[in-house]
Amino acid sequence: MSIKSIISCCKYQLYKMRFIPLVLVVYVFGAMILTAITISVIDKVPFSFANANAGIIDLLMGGIIFAFMCFFLMTDYLNTAAANGASRTTACISAYISSIICSLVSAIEVSVLIPIISLITGYGETWGASLYGYIGALQDAGWDMLSIRLRFFGICLVYYIALSTMAMLLVSIVYRFPKWVSAIIIITIIFIPTAGIYMTLGEEAFASFWYSIAKLLGLKIEHEWLIGNALQGAAVCIGLSLVLLLLSCLITRHSSVKPLAIKSD
């Protein structure tokens, strides 16, 4: 691993990700307009941006970043590095750095877009960030608007980083192992915390498991805390992303290079 190679890898990865900010803006406004049109058609009410519920934007943006990272890393993760004399560890670390930069840009973007959208729709809350406290509750607790926006930005940033690194781990598993092994691992990862616990240990254990997760992430839990612990959530997300990075590095450490199939071949 060398700084020079990490910089080269990051340059390439960021070059490939350069359209993300534009895609996100188009997506946010496109989704808003489409939602407003759909609601006006279905409910037979006059078109109004107030009908576009933009509260889900921060969550959906996380989903888009996750999906994009999966797609991007699937095509450009280790192969370009290997084609140019960079090691697997370098590729992993630079993908992590690039995902932080991408998350940073996305979090800035969503932090700027939300106030603009709230001006258009008249609705300023977002579902994701409200899990750490509604704007009203924070204002009641003495937070000024700038601090609330910065807090929102921070929450988005760490969640986007964690989601990007999850994508990195999934791609590492798919890259390293045969398809059937990857499928078993990924299904197990998804199954255990969802239906797995519910079916084997029962509803109470399932609820208690997710309650513990919410507590660990410092989320505001309805009727219990008005304001969540965002710092704790940030620490958990960063810690989680570092663990996922380490796992990705270990998984791909001895992985042979697998070229992509070209459709015309």
Binding site: M1, S2, D76, G85, T89, P259
Partner: peptide
């Protein structure tokens, strides 16, 4: 796993590793 050593080598393989 050594970038400074691997960086001295370029391989034009049969398969395309670039995207």
């Amino acid at each position: 796993g050594n970038d400074s050593a691997l960086g001295k080598v370029h391989m034009m393989g049969e398969q395309l590793l670039y995207n």
